[in-house]
């Protein structure tokens, strides 16, 4: 009888506050498992800004900073410049990274800052109760787009990974999803590769993870997975957009 799956030491014992079926929990697990498997938990400092994952400092079993909305990449830069040999990551939502924090994420990529960003894209502002985000799809309803987002009013949803992949300092850019066990395993592989890219000092690494928000999408967790597959994945195609040269 061998245990093949158990809770990773990369997570604390604290139960998360996330809504039932919110896939933040899966993404936390993947990051924590990767840090444990790379044996860098004791060398890692994470940064979680305002958003649903602002309480991540209670969940990741490593040193953590809580950061102001949108500024985690700058905070992470400050940490990494002081501790260049440590592993530093930021864990951010789309309301944070793709809206108020756009300058910060563009510039850590532009500087090739040797940090890793886990970018959770659920196409909505979760913590504040379902407002439209830059990643909200056309026609998708939100509390600040009650009749559904229109191009006319607020433009097309922002594809962050494609944008960042044009920046040379972004050594590793991949978009993944956590909607099926198979995709979850692929997501973990990408997250591991992203952290390895940092450890190998190749430059900035980011993994965009499509994620659900049952509460603010107004669906059951199972329907949310289905909605993600039918709507988010087509607009935000999965796959690697950039990888350091020579690494296949």
């Amino acid at each position: 009888m061998a245990v093949v799956f158990q809770k990773t030491k990369g997570l604390t014992d604290k139960e998360t506050h996330y809504c039932p079926g919110c896939t933040h929990g899966i993404i936390h697990r993947l990051v924590a498992e990767v840090l444990e498997e790379l044996d860098v938990l004791g060398e890692t400092i994470g940064v979680a800004p305002v958003g649903c994952s602002v309480l991540a400092y209670d969940y990741f079993n490593c040193d953590m900073h809580e950061a102001s909305h949108g500024r985690a990449p700058a905070v992470a830069t400050g940490i990494k410049r002081v501790l260049p040999d440590k592993v530093v990551f930021s864990y951010q939502g789309d309301g944070d990274l793709a809206s108020i924090g756009t300058a910060e994420i563009v510039h850590v990529a532009h500087r090739g800052e040797k940090i890793t960003t886990i970018f959770v894209n659920n196409a909505i502002y979760g913590m504040t109760g379902g407002q439209m985000a830059p990643t909200t799809l056309i026609g998708q309803r939100a509390t600040t787009a009650p009749l559904g987002r229109t191009v006319e009013h607020s433009g097309m949803p922002l594809r962050v990974s494609e944008m960042l992949a044009t920046i040379d300092g972004a050594a590793f850019v991949e978009r993944v999803s956590v909607d099926t066990p198979a995709n979850i395993r692929k997501a973990k592989k990408a997250i591991k590769e992203a952290f390895q890219c940092q450890i190998d000092r190749k430059g900035f690494s980011i993994v965009e993870v499509l994620s659900t928000c049952p509460t603010n999408w107004g669906m059951t967790p199972i329907d949310s997975i289905k909605w993600l597959q039918d709507n988010l994945i087509p607009y935000y195609p999965l796959g690697n957009l950039r990888r350091p040269e020579g690494v296949k």
Binding site: V4, F5, K7, P181
Partner: peptide, 20 residues
Amino acid sequence: IGCANCATICPDYVITVERF
């Protein structure tokens, strides 16, 4: 069959899986 799919998609680390 101990495939751990259930544990893989669980967002709250509820499930531990063993295989013979």
